[in-house]
Computed example of a mutant assay.
Amino acid sequence: MPGITDGLPNRFTRYVTEPEFQFADGAPAMTLCVWYRAGESGWQAGRAVDGGARTSAVDGSARLFDALLDWNAGALGAAFRVHSEPDQGAVQAIMDGAPISRAVVQKLNPDADFSIVEREMAIIGRR
């Protein structure tokens, strides 16, 4: 996949060639690709490519990373506001590393099954 995955180490290519990460025509279903390898000086990225009709921008990285660079609930909430209006206190608590309690999850999604959240947190080592 030229462009977006240029320079991607071979050990990572299997992740971007899986059907879950591709459009029906086999094109990569991503706006950018970044990776980090131990021993390198920092994060690496492929070059931006024009997504044509699939996207209105050449590269969505600015929109995706702005919320991470401006690490606060307001910025992150703005990135996801298209889907819902998140409780900024709950988002900020999680961003600050507070334990993810049933009450916090309920503020973010009253319909969430907390037992599923607990299992997922166990998998990623989060409390």
Results as ranks from 00 to 15, higher is better:
1 M>L: 13
2 P>K: 14
3 G>Q: 11
3 G>S: 09
5 T>H: 14
6 D>N: 09
6 D>I: 01
6 D>K: 04
7 G>A: 11
8 L>Y: 01
10 N>S: 14
12 F>V: 00
13 T>C: 14
13 T>P: 06
14 R>Q: 13
14 R>V: 12
16 V>M: 11
16 V>G: 15
17 T>M: 12
17 T>D: 13
18 E>G: 09
18 E>I: 13
19 P>Y: 03
20 E>M: 12
21 F>E: 12
22 Q>E: 10
24 A>H: 12
25 D>S: 06
25 D>P: 01
26 G>V: 02
26 G>Q: 02
27 A>P: 01
27 A>L: 06
29 A>V: 04
29 A>R: 14
30 M>S: 08
31 T>H: 14
33 C>Q: 05
33 C>G: 06
34 V>H: 10
35 W>H: 01
36 Y>W: 11
36 Y>V: 01
37 R>C: 09
37 R>M: 03
38 A>P: 10
39 G>W: 03
40 E>N: 13
40 E>D: 13
43 W>P: 00
43 W>E: 00
45 A>R: 02
45 A>Y: 04
46 G>T: 01
47 R>G: 14
48 A>S: 13
49 V>F: 05
49 V>R: 08
51 G>E: 00
52 G>H: 03
53 A>G: 08
54 R>K: 10
54 R>V: 00
55 T>A: 13
55 T>D: 15
56 S>L: 12
56 S>H: 08
57 A>G: 09
58 V>G: 13
60 G>N: 07
60 G>F: 01
60 G>A: 10
61 S>I: 07
61 S>M: 15
62 A>T: 01
62 A>G: 06
63 R>N: 08
63 R>W: 07
66 D>I: 05
68 L>F: 11
68 L>R: 06
69 L>H: 12
69 L>Y: 14
70 D>F: 04
71 W>T: 11
71 W>K: 10
73 A>G: 08
75 A>M: 05
75 A>D: 08
75 A>V: 05
75 A>Q: 07
77 G>E: 02
79 A>S: 11
80 F>A: 15
81 R>A: 15
82 V>C: 13
82 V>I: 15
82 V>E: 14
82 V>L: 13
85 E>Y: 11
85 E>W: 10
85 E>A: 15
85 E>L: 12
86 P>E: 07
87 D>R: 07
88 Q>D: 14
88 Q>R: 12
88 Q>T: 12
90 A>W: 04
90 A>S: 10
91 V>A: 05
91 V>F: 02
92 Q>C: 04
92 Q>S: 03
92 Q>H: 08
93 A>M: 01
93 A>G: 08
93 A>C: 08
94 I>C: 15
94 I>G: 09
95 M>S: 04
98 A>G: 12
99 P>T: 02
99 P>W: 07
100 I>H: 11
100 I>S: 12
100 I>F: 12
101 S>N: 04
101 S>Y: 02
105 V>H: 06
106 Q>H: 15
107 K>Y: 06
109 N>I: 09
109 N>R: 09
110 P>W: 11
111 D>F: 09
113 D>T: 06
113 D>W: 07
113 D>I: 10
114 F>N: 01
115 S>Y: 11
116 I>F: 05
120 E>P: 02
120 E>A: 09
120 E>D: 13
120 E>C: 08
121 M>C: 05
121 M>Y: 00
122 A>N: 12
123 I>L: 15
123 I>D: 05
124 I>Y: 14
125 G>Q: 11
